[in-house]
Design a protein around this nucleic acid. Structure first.
Lengths: 112, 112
DNA sequence: AACGTTTATCGTCGATATACGATAGAATGT
DNA sequence: ACATTCTATCGTATATCGACGATAAACGTT
């Protein structure tokens, strides 16, 4: 599929060779962005950030979704590394992983 | 689904009423995050940022995906508002919407 | 041991994402 | 007019998301 540069018209595109910035972080960024790519997960993240400490099943009360659905979102967030869950007796306390959050911010801010 | 606060054990969670930060932007953030929630789209965005100008079918050459697939990703990015496409003769030049990018950065940076 | 509470997982369903090839549309050049 | 090039769209197949209810698993309490 790759071939000649065509005439190029010089109208708007200027195809001087550009070296892509390290693609290695594309996956990381996509993964973290994916974690907050759903309104419910954004709310959960904000909720957890709001309380510096972690929260438990109250998330279910705050988010207007079924408990199982919230649990799934929490799982996705956990898999992204953005949040961490710690078992505390019968309940589980979640809290933000500040490092991952920082990394997300850094990667997004680095889009330039 | 909302009911009593239970005993609460005071172990790790501290359920002082917390007012959620404006939920209104949750959708916006989710939508923009979604746009960059795929490695290919991250690469495209970075590519477009790299060249301050816009690019055309070269994106297809840079991204190792079929032309139709790239076109779909471009459509998603366009729908998110992160990029804009401008017809230039037979080809289409894409460029970053700096405002939207700024908004994404702002929303992500605002996670605190 | 039995119960209640809390959370995770399972099974299901519809909707959507993602990938591709094939095709259609638009614009230019011969 | 015709061929060429570039891009978008269609059609299709597969995988995953997102939602729910139902159930299981873990823990504390009685």
């Amino acid at each position: 599929m790759a071939k000649k540069k065509t005439s190029q018209k010089e109208k708007c595109c200027d195809p001087s060779d550009v070296t892509l910035p390290g693609d290695d972080t594309a996956e990381d960024l996509a993964k973290l962005a994916w974690a907050v790519a759903h309104p419910a997960r954004v709310r959960i993240v904000r909720l957890l950030i709001g309380r510096k400490a972690c929260v438990c099943g109250e998330i279910v009360d705050e988010i207007t979704l079924a408990q199982s659905t919230v649990s799934q979102h929490l799982k996705i967030l956990k898999e992204s590394g953005l949040i961490q869950g710690e078992v505390d007796g019968p309940r589980v306390c979640y809290c933000i992983n500040r490092d991952k959050l920082k990394m997300l911010k850094k990667l997004i801010a680095g889009l330039k």
